[in-house]
Design a protein around this nucleic acid. Structure first.
Length: 489
RNA sequence: GCCCCCAUCGUCUAGCGGUCUAGGACGUCGCCCUCUCACGGCGAAAACAGGGGUUCGAGUCCCCUUGGGGGCGCCA
């Protein structure tokens, strides 16, 4: 069950991979998303693991955009991926590699394979192949290319039909992937067919491009989603045909939505920018994503620095995990409480601004001042901005339903008395506290009976940071004004 | 249909044959703290999918079943 290391590919890699101009060939990982959509949470985790491993091993982390699908790739998606990576703090080394730009190189490799007799031209039409698959389906046989052009002599070629290039895959024996997560995975070569390397228009397929790029980029460790596990066997065949060193693989179990179903748009597969908009912190995401499938004993709170020291491939779990927003919220709350008040105030300002609220340096000052009380009541920046309502509200305040209900005639009378008592005191938390308690005592009231009306009048809500802190942050004039507004009402 | 992967509390996980009457975290529930809500503290309920083996001994190893997931394109 536990994956164990099988051989030491790096040793061979250091000998064979090109452009190793230093005597010590370093480890290279890569993240290779295709820009057909946003960077979603599963991709982000894959990127994180690659990044952590490279940093841990003092290696190189590279980014490759697999934009060979010209129909579905968009510049917007590329931009979103790059921004997502930056927001997460996953900095990559070297230039970004764009796969499409390397098509010629890929085609060249395919041609080398044909020249070596390890790949061949196939003139079967798509229709013909579809029919073949249909028959295989009907017969309950495995669906794969039957090798009809594999051994035909060149003289059989169809002059007016552009052929595809297929790999001449081994037909017996097995292809073994020594995976750091899944262990040794064996595929009988009988189930692996002669897949296409080069399309009839001469462009390379994904399978070829990946292998060539990984080799050319010096990638030594491929950490990617489980959905590529069977691809690994095919890719391995290209690698072997070229006589290249095989990289170390680590196929991560896929992430599932909260309902256990495949991660889809409505099940948590939000673009990573959505998490930003939802008010989560990058460090939260790093910690959370790390714990989805990787563990270090019972540790839950793991700083990025600590993660870099601890991260390894052996502790990656083999089973898929679900995203859980409750836990994400809790973690975010932790990191927010730990964050500096100034940084949190900045984040809140940005959110308020986006909501069309006028932000001033005075507001920033107040936010920073109120932040200790605010941040322990919020799990996201969005909640923080919401909790800061009382700082941005203009008199007379709009009360929410609970606050309205709380301000009974009796409560308003208490407000009048409290207002008078406060008017006569120093405007410091301690003096305000003492004055309020004294007033409560002389009126034979519990402190809460005074504090809650005050809270409603001052914040428009029934929950807020400590009432004396609110008083101080709001200042004497504004506070008394708000109290007066409601005492009168 | 064929191939591959996976399976411990609701969720994330610890566990790498005996220390497991299965540990931690989130969530849930109760109590404490308390001007509200939080934070914090304390406590509770909550899991080895089922069946066969192997072994003196299995959550841990093997097989089967069941249940999830992935793959089987001139997509990536």
């Amino acid at each position: 069950m536990t994956a164990s290391p099988k051989g030491t590919p790096h040793a061979r890699a250091s000998r064979l991979i090109p452009h190793s101009n230093s005597s010590h060939m370093s480890l290279v990982t890569r993240f290779a998303p295709s820009p057909t959509g946003f960077l979603h949470i599963g991709g982000a985790r894959t990127a994180l693991f690659n990044w952590l491993y490279a940093r841990r091993m003092k290696g190189v982390f590279r980014l490759r955009i697999e934009d060979t699908d010209r129909q579905r790739s968009t510049p917007e998606a590329i931009e979103a991926i790059l921004e997502g990576m930056q927001w997460l703090g996953l900095n990559w080394d070297d230039e970004v590699v764009y796969q499409f730009a390397r098509a010629e190189r890929h085609a060249e490799v395919a041609k080398q394979l044909v020249a070596k007799g390890l790949a061949y031209h196939c003139y079967a039409s798509p229709e013909e192949l579809e029919e073949m698959r249909e028959q295989q389906r009907k017969a309950g046989k495995p669906i794969r290319y039957d090798g009809r052009w594999r051994d035909k002599p060149a003289s059989d070629s169809r002059p007016n039909v552009p052929p595809v290039v297929r790999i001449k895959a081994p037909q017996s024996g097995e292809t073994v992937i020594a995976d750091k997560v899944q262990g040794e995975v064996r595929f009988s070569n009988e189930v692996l067919d002669d897949f296409i390397l080069l399309r009839s228009d001469g462009t390379p397929t994904y399978m070829l491009s990946v292998v060539v790029d990984d080799f050319d980029m010096g990638v030594t460790h491929i950490i990617r989603g489980d959905d590529h596990l069977t691809n690994a066997a095919r890719q391995r065949q290209i690698i072997d045909a070229m006589g290249w060193p095989a990289p170390t693989y680590a196929h991560l179990p896929l992430l599932h939505g909260e309902d256990g179903q495949k991660l889809s748009k409505r099940h948590g597969a939000l673009g990573i920018h959505e998490y930003k908009n939802l008010g989560y912190l990058p460090e939260t995401m790093r910690n959370y994503l790390l714990r989805l499938g990787w563990s270090h004993g019972d540790d839950e709170i793991i700083s990025t620095q600590q993660a870099i020291e601890w991260f390894n491939l052996d502790s990656i779990g083999q089973s898929p995990s679900r995203v859980d927003f409750k836990k994400l919220d809790n973690l975010n709350g932790h990191y927010m409480r730990q964050a500096s008040d100034a940084m949190l105030a900045d984040g809140t300002m940005a959110l308020l601004k986006a909501k069309g609220i006028a932000v001033t340096s005075d507001l920033h000052t107040k936010l920073v001042e109120a932040m200790p009380g605010l941040k322990e009541r919020a799990k996201t920046l969005v909640e923080l901005a919401d909790g800061a309502y009382f700082l941005t509200a203009k008199r007379p305040l709009e009360l929410d339903d609970k606050a309205k209900k709380l301000l009974t005639p009796e409560a308003r009378a208490i407000l009048r008395g409290a207002g008078k008592a406060l008017e006569a005191t120093d405007w410091s938390a301690q003096a305000l506290d003492e004055a309020t308690r004294a007033y409560a005592e002389q009126s034979a009231l519990k402190l809460g009976a005074v504090a809650q009306p005050l809270r409603a009048a001052l914040t428009g809500r029934t929950t807020s940071p400590g009432i004396f802190d609110v008083l101080v942050v709001l200042g004497r004039a504004e506070s008394l004004g708000r109290i007066g507004d409601q005492a009168a009402g």
